[in-house]
Computed example of a mutant assay.
Amino acid sequence: MTNTDIFTINNAQSFRDQALATFKLQAANCQVYREYIHHLKIDVNQVSAIEQIPFLPIGFFKTHQIVSNQHPAEVIFSSSGTTGMSHSSHYVTDVALYEQSYLLAFNHFYGKVSDYCFLALLPSYQQRSGSSLIYMVNDLIEKSGHPQSGYFLDNHHDLLQTLTDLKTRNQPTVLIGVTYALLDFVEKFDLNFPELIVMETGGMKGRRKEMVREELHQQLTEGFGVPAIHSEYGMTELLSQAYSLGEGIFQCPDWMKVLIRDTNDPLTLIPEGKTGGINVIDLANINSCSFIATQDLGKINADQSFEVLGRFDNADIRGCNLLVQ
């Protein structure tokens, strides 16, 4: 199996085979994951189904270097958080995998990057280093090749003028923004740009009170004049993203899968329609750990889409969290 084999996955059997192969590889080569499996007294050779794979608690990225090879890190992504909190670090030894993952995922859900103008309203992310989101958006802006693609901090008048111009030109446009910044904008201006893709990345980051998703999305749809608000579900510890094209219903690319665990028994998975902890299989994480138990709560639907319903009570506030529903 090569690193790029994951991007050829096109059915459940292929995903299963590559997930199990990745599990055995990481159980042998990722020291932290190997020790975690050992403490659980799990026999790697007896794991024959995805449902039997143990998921590494995401908190280990705050305290350990999670790597599955000895190559030097090409980039180290770090999580956001409030002052005094510990931060996660993701040591990425092959950043080309991240680039391929987000480019192929965007192409799958939205089409060619070069067809779009990308506008970014991500002030809190721009003001720190190590953001995987900023890395992705930088690349999308560059690869779009559109002269008006770029970042906007607090210059909302410039953003309004740019959006108005793009609407007049019938230019397909993506506005990706942190939640509080999008709300700040629509409190000042009204727009009617129904073709615009507004993609919120979640997180109030202590700037505003938390809102239920329905209330948030209603304000944003009315403010931008769009039929739905899109969302991106990703985090520092992953190299893939799931996308919602509206209503908070997320779909994964073919090399990513979400499972739901029992909140009281983290080694037990629960069926569709039940709320529990979100486990993520991200096969793009082949050089770190592909099996992550997050601190998010959610549920899986019958079509394998999923919803994010909040966070565990004792979980840290994170820049990438989504809003309690």
Rank of each mutant, 00 (worst) to 15 (best):
L122H: 04
N3G: 07
K257T: 03
V198T: 11
L323V: 01
L245D: 10
Y36I: 01
V226E: 03
A28R: 13
G84V: 10
F189G: 02
I260A: 00
I58W: 00
L191G: 03
I300E: 12
I317Y: 00
N69I: 02
Y243K: 04
R208C: 10
R16Q: 11
K24F: 07
H146V: 09
T2W: 10
L104S: 12
K188R: 14
L153V: 15
S114M: 05
T164S: 10
L245P: 13
A315M: 05
L40M: 08
H108F: 12
A120D: 08
G206C: 15
W255K: 09
Q52C: 06
T2E: 15
T179W: 14
A49Q: 03
Q325W: 10
S48D: 12
D43N: 13
P266Y: 02
N155T: 12
F61W: 08
A242D: 11
V226K: 00
A120S: 14
N155R: 07
H39D: 15
Y91R: 07
D262R: 07
V186R: 07
G84T: 11
K24C: 03
G150Q: 15
I141W: 07
T63A: 06
D43F: 03
I50F: 05
T8I: 04
N314F: 07
D254E: 13
F152R: 02
H38C: 11
M136Y: 09
Y116H: 00
V280D: 01
S132V: 05
N45I: 01
R16T: 15
G273Q: 04
P147R: 11
I249R: 12
K24E: 00
L182V: 13
K167F: 08
K209M: 10
Q325S: 09
G277Y: 01
N155A: 12
H156A: 01
Q100H: 11
F312S: 07
L182S: 12
R311G: 10
A284M: 01
G246S: 05
C289N: 14
D262I: 11
L140F: 14
H157M: 09
V113W: 06
M235H: 03
E35N: 14
